[in-house]
Design a protein around this nucleic acid. Structure first.
Lengths: 203, 203, 203, 203
DNA sequence: TAATAACCGAGACGGTACGTCTCGTCTTAGG
DNA sequence: CCTAAGACGAGACGTACCGTCTCGGTTATTA
């Protein structure tokens, strides 16, 4: 999406209703027919908008898809229950909920393909879908270390990938179930696998 | 791919050189321009072959892509060193090697997208890239359980997803490094996280 | 139009029915809706043909229009009645008939505009609509000189333009009537204006 | 062009500099890129004017083109040398001069096409380019008849078309030369072809 | 002086045709 | 029946241009 850096509005400003109509039509259509049968002309017709209004905002179909999906990003609230495992499970359940939603689940695989050839889309997606939750998890893990629940020398990136990887693996490739059992399974695994061994030995 | 059920060859037999030329051209082009700019006409031209020769062998573009990629599958040898961790690491390193190869790495994201709308492509890919290694890992884990290195009640599917997930997660989404450190990291995590607690307590 | 110079037909040959369907649809549509509302997509639909089949034959809309109109060219038969005036009138009446046809009359002005920016269209039109009749008139005038009806030193190009100009002038600009009176009028004028003065004086 | 019927100017009056800037830009652009690549947006940009300022003055592109070209019309002075042929030649030379100007020559063919679908443009053009000279020629011819140089029963419309037709014929269709030779050629032809035969016989 | 009305530049808007592209199929002549 | 070459129908793509509309603001006349 193109965003003006200056606030100075010269000429007729973009119509916010058009903005919304385009994204709404786009989301509806993606949900209804899937990415593969998603057509720009249909978006224009559904949104009662000229194609030019779309292409003025998004340089290409992929860009529109990216923006449409990015709009689905939901807020993440980092719980702090005092229990490291519970905090991890809470965040993982949030992710499970996101990819249980049929639209997001249907859209994700297509986005993966598009990310390769559109670096800026990749950035958008990563920031919209990953960074937030990843940062939240990092915070929780760090608190877990401080609390003595987790080893101080754990490979943080690996831990985050072990938490997030299986979910996407099932979503994109194996087709395995994405549910609370998964969320708790990886949480428990991380808790056990990265447990503070010093503490254990001390005990 | 279409394979004749009868061995009886009536009329002119298919030219094996044409078979090879098509797959070779296909692989070259995918590597050069990426899946997105991969065109059937280009394959025909590069292979010095008519388009009909391609469509006689593969019903669609996706099918050709699937076959091309499937041809990249390498043999998996299930080591049995007697050491569960070493066996896991060996298999994981095999996977790391596969996705370190630029072609396979470049092709995978596109395949993920295509898998959604082409169930048979999905099956081909899963069988070509996953099943073999997954079965091998399952075998190794089962031996680990028998050997008392791993808990008898471990969630096998979860364990396999924890081993495979992070690799694909980095490949497809985060862009994180895919190397021996990752292989060993997830192996160690599984070894620790799914350790046979009975044995530990006994010790 | 693109015409292969070699007779060697390799690959699937152009379908002559497609050729005809395109030109027929084009002519029908021009006649029905006029040049201004003439659309390539409509031609494709009417001809039950893909747009690519059209663009394979004609590089642009202008080119198709040109070819469509060129197909309207009618045969010119150079009469030789022995009477110079009658021969001229016969040829002029042929031209009058052509531009009395509503389709040709409606199409001509648009072609004039297109001729400026499409030299090869210009050539096509000139050859299709002018050269033949012009050559025929030249022949008749030459015979008239030989016969002593016309001055030997007449400016042939001027004579031809005086014969043809008024017709196009009325067609394209003044909107004046195009009829036998005009044909006879210019014929008589040329007969009188370019009469062999030597002969007159001799008489 | 829209002209207020009331002289009462309410609100801000039109800026005369804007009027001029639009016409100037329009003329420049037509001369530079030709009618076919002439865009309203370009006019606005070149004239440093909003598109609305243009459309407030001219209802359409064709209308602007018409007005731009009409501004090129030059004054016609009907000479009265006492010599019919000289008067005709003088007027014809004026026309030759007009269409020797590259801009007018380049613009005319496009106008012909536009005239068909824009009757009021047609009127503008006819009045701007034809009526004046046609009236002048008619006057000269009428004087020629009175003077006995031309036949009283000549077909005036035909005579006028024979004078004007060849020029436009060459301009629009044949591409033949437009020069004094042409002017004199048609003048002489009309003088001879429509000569007063009564007078001749009398002589 | 304030209100009103039409002007101004900039640029977004809906609409629509264009010419391009690719897919998967079909049609030749020839091996 | 295979092959290469390439035409075919279908239909989405992204671009271009038109003529209209909307914004914030300006410049005159009228109240």
């Amino acid at each position: 999406m193109i965003t003006s850096s200056t606030t100075t509005t010269i000429g007729r400003p973009r119509d916010a209703r058009t903005d919304r109509a385009i994204l709404a039509a786009s989301l509806e259509l993606i949900a209804e027919v899937g990415i593969h049968d998603f057509r720009m002309d249909d978006v224009a017709e559904r949104a009662r908008v000229g194609k030019s209004a779309i292409y003025r905002r998004y340089r290409s179909k992929d860009e529109l898809v990216g923006a449409t999906v990015a709009a689905l990003v939901s807020e993440i609230d980092v719980a702090d229950t005092g229990d490291t495992r519970e905090d991890i499970v809470a965040l993982m359940n949030g992710a499970v909920d996101v990819y249980t939603d049929p639209i997001r689940a249907a859209v994700m695989p297509s986005l993966v393909g598009a990310m390769q050839r559109r670096p800026e889309l990749a950035r958008t997606i990563r920031e919209g879908f990953l960074t937030g939750r990843r940062d939240a998890l990092r915070e929780v893990l760090t608190r877990g270390i401080a609390r003595g629940d987790l080893a101080a020398d754990l490979d943080m990136e690996l831990a985050l990938d072990v938490l997030g990887g299986p979910l996407f693996y099932r979503l994109l490739i194996t087709g395995g179930p994405i549910n609370r059992e998964l969320a708790e399974g990886v949480a428990d695994l991380v808790m056990r696998g990265f447990a503070d061994t010093m503490k254990e030995k001390a005990a």
